[in-house]
């Protein structure tokens, strides 16, 4: 008889997740709560100045209270929630060249990310196969790849901007650079370490070069390539947001920047959360896709 997992085993971890979230929100709210405004000890002049500066406002009863629209320090979760509600409410509204709804911004980021990542990956796999198939080439190229691999993709940005002279393409190229090296290195390594038996059999069958590539080499190296793509994926995702922030190109990173420009911390927190969710969604989709190409060797 199969043992049915207990209720605790099945839902316990999720409950724990919720509990952690709840606790976090509670601590956050408690830590950012400001005491009620106390007008005692303040002269009429001081109060007028404070009101003029937007620190306090008069409530319906004519008493001074803290201005609810002006957040001092880190805003609480309620403020962020409010901000998220207004932003999501206008997710697909364009209010001019510089103010597109969050839905558009996320879409721009995904587009930018996907085009850079796809182009980078295709180039990287081709390059990797080329290098990996020949031992001398592999040894000759390896030092360059090892040096280029650890360079932060953002470090390329000034050089790219200067040579390409176009922020739109620069942003895509930054993503391209970010997704290039890990895949090149992994593909080369994977192709290079294919079991020699496979290649011998392919040679015996007198397969054409292309056929050999698609039926033997790539499938055999697939796990290594996928692993490389995964690393590239992560680093490209990390690169796209700061590239948008620095270049001022519309996207999720742009949102972070304009909210920061307004010193609107709830906006910044909201933008960070958006970046997190977008990254999670993309990573999840990629994981599902990768699962189709992975297998365990028998």
């Amino acid at each position: 008889m199969a043992i049915r997992p207990s209720w605790n085993d099945r839902f316990g971890p999720y409950l724990l997740s919720l509990l952690i979230l709840g606790l976090f929100l509670f601590v956050w709210e408690a830590a950012t709560r400001s005491p009620r405004f106390d007008a005692k000890g303040k002269t009429e002049d001081q109060l007028t100045t404070m009101e003029f500066n937007g620190d306090v406002v008069k409530d319906a009863a004519g008493h001074y209270i803290w201005n609810p629209d002006k957040v001092k320090g880190i805003p609480g979760p309620m403020k962020v929630f409010e901000k998220a509600r207004t932003e999501l409410g206008e997710a697909f509204v364009k209010k001019g060249t510089n103010d597109h709804g969050i839905g558009f911004l996320v879409w721009y980021t995904i587009k930018r990310f996907m085009s850079g990542f796809l182009a980078g990956s295709i180039v990287a796999i081709l390059l990797g196969v080329l290098i990996g198939l020949s031992k001398p080439l592999f040894i000759a190229f390896n030092p360059f790849i090892q040096v280029l691999k650890p360079i932060s993709p953002l470090a390329w940005m000034p050089l790219l901007l200067y040579s390409v002279k176009d922020p739109f393409w620069t942003a895509i190229l930054v993503v391209f650079m970010a997704s290039l090296w890990p895949t090149v290195a992994n593909t080369a390594f994977g192709v290079n370490s294919i079991r020699k038996d496979y290649l011998h059999v392919a040679a015996l069958l007198e397969m054409s070069y292309l056929r050999r590539l698609f039926t033997v080499v790539l499938p055999a190296a697939a796990p290594a390539i996928i692993a490389g793509l995964r690393i590239s994926f992560g680093s490209a995702l990390v690169a796209v947001v700061p590239a948008e922030m620095l270049l001022g190109e519309l996207g999720a990173g742009y949102l972070t920047w304009i909210e920061w420009n307004n010193l609107d911390i709830s906006g910044v927190i909201f933008a960070i959360l958006v970046v997190g969710f977008v990254g999670y969604a993309l990573d999840y989709a990629f994981g599902r896709l990768a699962a189709l190409f992975t297998y365990t060797e028998v």
């Binding site: 209010k95 001019g96 103010d99 304009i258």
Partner: peptide, 8 residues
């Protein structure tokens, strides 16, 4: 507004 200065 946000489209321009984005300031209070």
């Amino acid at each position: 507004p946000t489209n321009y200065l984005n300031q209070p």
